[in-house]
Amino acid sequence: MHFIHKYGSPNYFYQWSGTWLKILSALTLILMALGLYWALIISPPDYQQSETVRIMYIHVPSAWMSMFTYVVMASAGVVAMIWRIKVAEIVVAQSAIIGASFTLLALVTGMLWGKPMWGAYWVWDARLTSELVLLFLYVGVLAIYSAYEDPRTGAKAASILAIVGVINIPIIHYSVEWWNTLHQGPTVTKFDSPSAPLSMLTPLFIMFFAFKTYFFALLFARTRNALLSRERHTSWVQEILEK
């Protein structure tokens, strides 16, 4: 478990994440531009939903990322709980903010799609309700984190909620299969025969990778900033400031 201490040392983290931040930012720019152009202009309309289908290219990646971010946050929570790594504690708080934003984006785009397609902005089915619970979990983690004077104590308490809440992730994913829901079942993860043509799946996957690189770029940028501010009195930050 030596690598956890190595990559998690504030000084070394700041160095290696700097390189990755540049690569990820460049990738995000390219993928986002290509993905949005393909999704909003090149890809065909749907036979039933016509142009409304384009909401999917934002909605589905944000919904996937809302769950992925939670897993990242909970994993950082485990590292923070067991190894007490400072960087992991900061990652918990920063991914909570980003995750809450992805969740909100998924909920809002879903509502905008639901009104014209289903006939209602919101229904209390298992998928929509469990995704709303996810938003509350993120907000709860943030609230606990900032409720303590000492950020390290706050991180410990917030990590516990982050870890416990991971149970919600399989519930969200399988809600459409376990219970009758108004929300449709999976389209893409039926890998043997996805129920969408390549002309729609290609822009969706580009958007998915764009969201993923965007997430990591944002996470690194935010964590680096928080780390500098938290460690501002240490010698390695002073050295960076002098350069």
């Binding site: 749907d46 039933q48 006939g119 449709q184 969408a196």
Partner: peptide, 16 residues
């Protein structure tokens, strides 16, 4: 109240 349930199938109108 009547709500439409959309299924998981997507396709361009020409293909349909």
């Amino acid at each position: 109240e009547v709500l439409a349930k959309h299924d998981e199938n997507y396709m361009p109108p020409e293909l349909a």
